[in-house]
């Protein structure tokens, strides 16, 4: 069974020029060509896209949610990275 089963692919669609490819879902396909064709038929039937990326789900490396505190929280108190942290005197524009 598992030998016959097509691998899972994740699908990313660029909806129009100027935007990033965005994850939309997954599908099964035996090879990359058919994965792209299937993605076209499954995820762009209503002109939702102008470009498709497919990648084998197994090839995606994700961060571990249990490590989220040490990965992401240290950035939370670095407010000086945001422009709103700074006072700009009245009368100054274009900054």
């Amino acid at each position: 069974m598992s030998q016959q089963e097509w691998p899972l692919w994740e699908v990313f669609i660029r909806s129009k020029k100027g935007l990033n490819h965005k994850h939309v879902g997954s599908l099964r396909a035996p090879d990359a060509q058919l994965a792209v064709e299937n993605a076209r038929d499954v995820y762009t039937r209503r002109s939702e896209g102008i470009s498709i990326w497919v990648v084998l789900s197994n090839d995606i490396v994700a961060s571990d949610p249990s490590e989220s505190p040490e990965l992401f929280e240290p950035a939370d108190d670095k407010v000086y990275r945001h422009p709103t942290f700074y006072d700009v005197p009245d009368g100054i524009s274009h900054m």
């Binding site: 097509w6 599908l27 099964r28 396909a29 058919l34 064709e37 299937n38 038929d41 499954v42 039937r45």
Partner: peptide, 11 residues
């Protein structure tokens, strides 16, 4: 034969 191909043939 598989859902994806069902959609392809209908298209």
């Amino acid at each position: 034969p598989i859902l994806e191909e069902d959609i392809a043939m209908t298209n």
